[in-house]
């Protein structure tokens, strides 16, 4: 039986004045699927990620995330969707510098619902940082910071994980560790959408969607 559709866009478009960085994107992502979005600079990857993560609103079209039509939501409603349904992973990690690894994970719990430090510790242990919970971001390597970011993205059981160049700022060894984590998440049945330039990262995805000039030029199974 086909898995349920978690994410669907119909004619998703973003315009900035006369410029249209994203034009009529039609896409479906099923539960547990790992989709890599690729394309050259200026192809619309970032704009698409901003729309899919509800950080921005589309100019036209529909975007249904886990049963919620998000295109016409207010900013406040989009914040709620981000909080409830999306786990965000950034290229620059973006951890709060004065909070420990554990507190950075708990921060997502704080904005979501309730705080369970044991749960947050487990999430850090899950990404191999059970021994680094009390460390500040400045005391962690780039790879460790990214793993804290992943733990924070997972802590609220989001419908999808959206990652923007998650290995873009990592050395080879750490890239390997993060890639293994994504493989693990995929095996656990998590739905992952990953924007990347890195063909090696895309290689392990179920599907590769290629963008060019704001349009999908290629969308097929990677294997």
């Amino acid at each position: 039986m086909a898995k349920k559709i978690v994410l669907e866009t119909k004619g998703l478009t973003k315009r900035f004045g006369s410029v249209t960085p994203l034009d009529s994107i039609n896409m479906q992502v099923r539960e547990g699927e790992w989709v890599a979005i690729m394309g050259p600079s200026g192809s619309g990857k970032t704009t698409m990620l901003n729309l899919l993560s509800c950080l921005d609103a589309p100019s036209a079209g529909e975007y249904i995330l886990d049963g919620v039509a998000t295109a016409t939501l207010t900013e406040k409603q989009r914040v709620a969707v981000r909080r409830e349904k999306i786990g965000l992973i950034f290229q620059q990690f973006h951890l709060v510098p004065y909070l420990t690894a554990l507190e950075n994970v708990m921060l997502a719990q704080y904005y979501h619902s309730m705080i369970d430090s044991k749960d947050a510790e487990q999430a850090l242990a899950h990404v191999g940082l059970g021994h680094r919970t009390g460390h500040l971001p400045s005391q962690l390597s780039g790879g460790e910071q990214q793993r804290v970011c992943i733990a924070r993205a997972l802590i609220n059981q989001p419908a999808i994980i959206l990652a923007d160049e998650p290995t873009g700022n990592l050395d080879e060894a750490n890239e390997e560790v993060v890639l293994d984590l994504f493989k693990g998440l995929h095996r656990e049945g998590r739905t992952i959408i990953l924007v990347t330039h890195n063909p090696e990262l895309a290689e392990f995805s179920d599907r590769v969607v290629r963008l060019q000039h704001g349009r999908v030029v290629h969308d097929e199974s990677a294997h």
């Binding site: 719990q109 619902s113 309730m114 705080i115 369970d116 430090s117 749960d119 997972l154 059981q157």
Partner: peptide
């Protein structure tokens, strides 16, 4: 994790 959370803070 989020569903069966037991708040301790």
């Amino acid at each position: 994790m989020a569903g069966d959370r037991r708040p301790d803070t």
